[in-house]
Nucleic acid binder design. Sequence first.
DNA 1: GTTGGACCCTCCCCCTGCGAGAGGGTGCAC
DNA 2: GTGCACCCTCTCGCAGGGGGAGGGTCCAAC
Lengths: 265, 265
Amino acid sequence: MLAIGEFSRLTHLSIRTLRRYHEAGLLVPATVDPATGYRSYGADQIPTAQVIHRLRDLDVPLADVRRILEAPDPAARGALVAEHLRRLEAELERTRGAVASLRRLLAPDPAPVHVEVRAVPATTVAAVEGDVGVDDVLAWYAGAMAELDAVVEDGDGAPGGLYDNALFEEGRGHVLVHRPTARPPRRGRVHPVTLPAVELAVATHTGPHDDIDVTYGEVGAWVVANALAVAGPVRETYLVGPRDTADPAAWRTEIGWPVFGVGER
Amino acid sequence: MLAIGEFSRLTHLSIRTLRRYHEAGLLVPATVDPATGYRSYGADQIPTAQVIHRLRDLDVPLADVRRILEAPDPAARGALVAEHLRRLEAELERTRGAVASLRRLLAPDPAPVHVEVRAVPATTVAAVEGDVGVDDVLAWYAGAMAELDAVVEDGDGAPGGLYDNALFEEGRGHVLVHRPTARPPRRGRVHPVTLPAVELAVATHTGPHDDIDVTYGEVGAWVVANALAVAGPVRETYLVGPRDTADPAAWRTEIGWPVFGVGER
DNA sequence: GTTGGACCCTCCCCCTGCGAGAGGGTGCAC
DNA sequence: GTGCACCCTCTCGCAGGGGGAGGGTCCAAC
């Protein structure tokens, strides 16, 4: 039996951390003296401590570590670990994007953004809509667009999306993706929707979506400078997107802010 | 002038977060109404907000973000950012190591570790020593070993290190790296040191150092099982290390715990 | 037998970077 | 003047610890 100090030396986990893991039910000492509260660990708990150490190195939350340790068999354990490695992979991808975007943002002379107001008539489109959390929006979008593509054969124009402000402000909001078509079908989640006529302050964003908030900022500043007010969800139109080319630098996205009060200044 | 809500929409930073950035001095509103406390932002602050957003996406601490924003010229800014990207790179490398190590730890049938006790006589070596934080130990080691190699021409044996327990327990401790040689020189940080004679419980670890705590655990368990006590800093000897081969899988590191009370059982 | 020191215990506050909510003031349109 | 959107400050919560206070326990040396 090992006192907590010895166990700490053997595992390179601090005494404090071991106590916390006990409290969290992650690594319960083999015995605890009921009179003194002294913790004793068995040498056979060292490998468990090391697995926890590795998982924490990977920033796996304690709750998930517990789930992994409680897995009934090595296969289930492996599956849970693999799941986390995938999460890590995604995180890595996100980081790569942020780095690239930071580099572009700090690069000299960004191309100026051209903003103009355009009247858009009411349009009937085939759409999929739902309430989505901001973290899930990419996955949701991919699913919705795939369904849309499967159902709409005679699309005539670039697909687009409408994003409620609440999505950005409260982390959750209404999202609608659509494809324009002459006869919008009704199948599965796909159904016809008539988008109302609006005046749109539009600008076109070129490049990956990591940078899209820059163009958003430009449009917003323009709208403010021209004394307009915003009315309704932002509209994006994917003129050239991942369905058209694998090169994000070639993507072209039209950003439209519904406005009113044009030309007051 | 933009109210905080509008600015929030334009930058996709929550109102709460903007207030926090104000409080932290990161992004101070252009004006604050002294009567109501209402914050107003200028459209020219949008790019700054976006840079902060990118940096935070990369988990750059707010204090460092401020330092970057306060940099006098773009060149200095770029240097600071590059510094952080390097940190990120290192982090990534660490993560890769942890993943690989986790995989090995979960892999079936690890090779059993052979532990034995060996009497080591007092030895005089050329050494570099210092008090080091656990996070800096790798960098410190690299520098110390380079200096040692530059000064010791006639080394006769594998280099090694002595690591105080405090390094692991308190995050900071005494470290000594050395090369055995017949005539230890005294130059720069290098000086002769006589390592005392000890009984060492030794085991050899094969593979990258990401896994070394596993072997540590084995040695520790063996020491406990054989009713020995530990006396003095752990000794490592780099039989085959990064100086010998670039393939970490081929590394061989001898781990020695100074013990006494041998053979009580 | 007691004293010193190493070791262990619990409890509480601190850190970062937010999110959530309470409780209250402000600005503007109808 | 009444509702509503918007803004303010304040406090509390989170993970995953670090740091320290204040006190009990064990063991060997004197």
